[in-house]
Design a protein around this nucleic acid. Structure first.
Length: 433
RNA sequence: GGAGAAAUACCCAAGUGGUGAAGGGGCUCCCCUGCUAAGGGAGUAGGGCGUGAAAGCGUCGCGAGGGUUCAAAUCCCUCUUUCUCCGCCA
């Protein structure tokens, strides 16, 4: 949600900045300005009526006590009451319309972003270089199947396409990754939270996934009149709504959270032939970092989150790159986003394993998340940031592909060994599925 | 899942239709006192919204949303959450 005052004061600037995100907002802004005027004039009128009504209301008991005739004043009060009700309904209607248009506007991209889409993304940093093999490397689907790490056929049997099963050493490797990530975050002072995997609709609104992306999540079919639930598409949805409708103290900022959850996504129509295996599924594992900060601290926090995501990938010994997304490639809620992309040899390309974003006050406005500034005693909206740290289901294919050896075995990255009872190499004879 | 009770400020809590939502604790300030404790006094209902340069003024506000009424913390309905008992259960 954008600040209505900003729109009121600089409508042209807002239109220009949203244009960088590929959004022509001229009509919406015009509509907002009109509804906003209408709303304020209705409020003014209604408040005057209410003031009059309050005055009259106080007269009645006084007159009654004095034994005066109250029929005339009661009649006036009744008329005022009707008029107020009509005005209030009109105001409510106007506010709903206004909110609908406002909620549909994406966040403003930071001014330093290049306008346009993916083609304007900018590689900021590269670490390492693509692995060279002196043998014909296998792809991760074959490796995972041959080593018995992942059971694709039975995943499909249980739940259909887009689902798989981690088995034996595969499950332990995935678990080791989660442990490595979480332990690192704990050392960095983040609070570990375990959140519900089913969320009520409001949470999706705060993070900005709704109303636009309502079709991309799984909704549970509840009985008539029951609260609606959806399966969370990322822990961000839960973590960003954690402090909905709260006023935090300035002292307790920044808040730093980390959560592991499976993530559930429909991914309708987004299947590509090169995204085999676990590159894109309906359920994948991810550790998510979220920070709530004062406005002036969010740039620093953003760099911290990017640095943390990079450090995790570096710790695994991988070649990767950090990409600054162009305005249009950032999601609707975000002012800026950097992606960490890891090299997957069989795809001859890079796949996102982390996406770090600064929403500034966009989500905080939607969720009414504020803090009280000590100096002024006033409340302000916080800034929210989030970043994957990391998506394990994209890391595991990279591990097996980048660390494969000529004999088909896979080296376990050093940092993970302590979570795997010291095992250094994954070989065929460890698992039979 | 069934039955019952409750929700008022930072905390406890009074308030069953009528002008400003009691009181206490805590907190802040002041006084008294070598210091501390104790004591005395004052302040302390949030957060929006509208208007205004600001001070201010107006409005909303007693879990949420509706309704009845000239008037609702108070009466009625729906919902949410919490507690107690029963059932079920990892």
């Amino acid at each position: 949600m954008l600040d209505i005052r900003l729109i009121r004061e600089n409508p042209d600037e807002i239109i220009a900045r949203l244009a960088a995100k590929g959004r022509d907002a001229k009509e919406d802004i015009a509509k907002i300005l009109e509804l906003d005027r209408e709303r304020r004039s209705l409020i003014q009128k209604t408040d005057e009526l209410k003031a009059r009504q309050n005055k009259v209301s106080k007269e009645i008991p006084r007159m009654k006590k004095a034994g005066e005739d109250v029929s005339a004043i009661v009649l006036e009060s009744r008329q005022l009451s009707d008029e107020i009700k009509d005005n209030d309904n009109l105001r409510k209607e106007t506010e709903e319309k206004l909110n609908e248009v406002m909620a549909g506007l994406p966040n403003l991209p930071d001014p330093d972003l290049k306008p346009g889409g993916k083609e304007n993304n900018e590689v900021l940093r590269m670490f390492g270089s693509p692995k060279q093999f002196d043998f014909e490397p296998k792809n991760h689907v074959d490796l995972c199947t041959d080593l018995g790490l992942i059971d694709y056929p039975r995943g499909a049997k249980l739940s259909g396409s887009g689902f798989w099963i981690y088995r034996g050493m595969g499950a332990r490797l995935e678990w080791a990754l989660l442990n490595y990530f979480i332990e690192t975050h704990l050392n960095d002072g983040y609070e570990l939270v375990m959140v519900p995997h089913m969320l009520g609709g409001q949470a999706g609104y705060v993070s900005g996934q709704f109303p636009k992306f309502k079709d991309e999540v799984y909704w549970l079919k509840n009985d008539e009149g029951e609260r609606e639930h959806f399966m969370l598409p990322t822990a961000e949805t839960a973590l960003v709504s954690l402090h909905m409708d709260e006023i935090l103290t300035e002292k307790e900022l920044p808040r730093k959270y980390v959560a592991y959850t499976p993530c559930f996504r429909k991914e309708a129509g987004s299947h590509r032939t090169d995204e085999r295996g676990m590159i894109r599924g309906h359920q994948f594992n991810k550790v998510e970092m979220v920070q709530y900060t004062r406005p002036e601290d969010s740039d620093k926090a953003f760099e911290e989150l990017v640095g943390k995501a990079e450090a995790l990938v570096k710790g695994l010994g991988f070649h990767f790159r950090t990409v600054k997304l162009a305005a249009e490639d950032c999601s609707a809620s975000m002012a800026r986003t950097y992606d960490i992309e890891i090299h997957i040899p069989s795809m001859n390309g890079y796949k996102e394993v982390s996406s770090v974003s600064n929403a500034r006050d966009y989500q905080a406005r939607r969720g009414n998340i504020r803090f009280r500034r000590e100096e002024t005693g006033k409340t302000e909206f916080v800034h929210t940031l989030n970043g994957s740290g990391l998506a394990t289901s994209r890391i595991l294919p990279a591990i097996v592909e980048q660390n494969q050896q000529k004999d088909g075995s896979v080296l376990v990255p050093e940092v993970l060994r302590k979570y795997l009872g010291g095992i250094e190499v994954l070989t065929k004879d460890m698992n039979h599925i």
